[in-house]
Computed example of a mutant assay.
Amino acid sequence: MAVVALGTAAAPAAFADDASPSPKGPLPSGLYGKKDPQFDGVFRQSYALLAQKTVGVTPAVKAVDWLTGQQCASGGFAAYRADASEPCNSKTQVDSNSTAAAIQALHAVGNESSAVKKSLDWLKSVQNQDGGWGYNPGLPSDANSTGIVVGALAAVGEKPASVKSQKGKSPLDALTKLAMDCGKDGGAFGLADAKSGKLAPNADATAAGVLGGLGQGLVPVKGKKADAAPKCAKPDTAGQAAANGTGYLLKSLAKTGHLTSAMPGAKDQPDVGNTADAVVALAAAGQQEQAEKSGEWLSENSAAWAKENGPAAYAQLVFASLAAGMDARDFGGADLVKQLNAQGPTPKAVSEVTVGAEEKDEKKDDDGSGVSVWWIVGVGLVAGAGIGFLLSGRKKKNQL
């Protein structure tokens, strides 16, 4: 996986070199978002449905049906299939990220067990020998893809430590290999450079790696409150790798409350999407103070970004608001739930009760990994500068 210089998570802006921001033809009535779904249709739909269920909204039947209809006979999902009536073939680019995100959403709606099982079986069939996953089958494992699959496994009650490759490696093993040293790399999770293949510290990969190492996904669950920033040590377990990554995020956010990124040739700018991801990761790691500070920054600075980037961005902010202990229906004066619902077909039902992040006591799961796990519904994490759009960027770089 390569270093991708994208801005934030969930948006068409990151697709500037790939596609027009507007679709070439009419979009399906069940699909969320109005921009070209070529690279992120399944992903943004999954995020939207999962976020809705998290805050008490029952999605429209046709929205769920559209997502289910995108599944290939193998169980895998591609980013988008314009004509889902045509069977998938060897040219259909099924990927781990779209598939893992769809599992989270379909499991959350509660009535798609057959589709979920097929997708889980497909993911297991394309697991790399090191225990992880790349974006597409056959690509090297990366923290983002491995993290989102961990979230899918956790959502359905499977323990990632028990999902092993033919060589006996689990996704937790893969995450330890994707974690970097404490010295110059600060304990971050790495993203592989396209030219050299070497890992470089990356905030997006780190947020994903922290959640994966803790056995969590995108739906916020607060971990046991930490007394201080974790000490960095050799990442010989997924739990320690997650602790190291937590420290890296804390240092990165300490000064301004947000992460930064830069497009090639541009000045550094606030990275809204990765900041939202970091809030969820820090809450999971028990670092609630910084999660709340960064959540406040998001509430004051995310409106334009979310409007531009659509359903996945609104969903990401819903998750971040709950992780920060804030009200998703009054986030800096904005009703994120209402804004998300307006991105697609009218929901079947809407509850006025805002669901906050559930707080769990830390429990050790005796699986030999040394990882504290709270199995919940959720997705791993794949967002950086625009949720589905980061996916596109990673995919392109991986294929170089």
Rank of each mutant, 00 (worst) to 15 (best):
V116L: 08
V221M: 07
L199T: 10
G33V: 09
V156S: 00
A229S: 12
S141V: 07
Y135P: 10
S125N: 07
L340K: 02
K251F: 07
A228Q: 15
D193F: 03
C88Y: 02
E296Y: 12
A383P: 00
A324N: 13
G76A: 11
G187W: 01
S20R: 13
A238P: 04
A328G: 00
G213N: 12
K53I: 01
G75W: 02
S22P: 05
N89H: 12
D271N: 09
R81K: 07
K348M: 09
S351D: 04
A276N: 05
S302Q: 02
D327A: 01
A283T: 06
A82P: 01
L259N: 09
L27V: 00
Y135H: 11
Q70C: 03
D204W: 02
G134K: 14
Q93L: 12
A357E: 00
A312P: 01
T354Q: 05
N144C: 11
G157H: 06
L27F: 15
G386Y: 09
P137I: 03
A291D: 12
A281V: 02
P270S: 06
P235V: 08
L67W: 14
A291P: 09
P160T: 03
L250K: 14
K360D: 04
N111M: 05
A312M: 07
K397R: 10
K117E: 14
K53Q: 01
V371T: 15
A283N: 07
P311I: 01
F43E: 15
M326C: 00
S119D: 12
P347Q: 02
G325E: 11
F39S: 01
E158D: 15
L282V: 06
A194K: 14
F39K: 09
A84N: 10
N274P: 10
A155C: 09
A102Y: 05
Q70K: 06
G239L: 10
A154K: 02
A324K: 15
V280Q: 01
W305C: 03
Q93A: 13
S113W: 03
F189S: 15
R44K: 14
Q45L: 08
V272S: 08
D142Q: 15
K198M: 11
N341I: 00
A102F: 05
K222N: 12
K231P: 05
A324T: 11
K360R: 02
E289C: 10
A16C: 08
A5P: 15
S294N: 09
K363E: 09
V210H: 11
R81Q: 05
N244S: 11
L381G: 01
G265V: 14
G388M: 07
K255I: 06
I103Q: 06
L250R: 15
T246P: 06
Q343P: 06
A143W: 03
G190S: 12
K224M: 13
V379Q: 05
P171D: 11
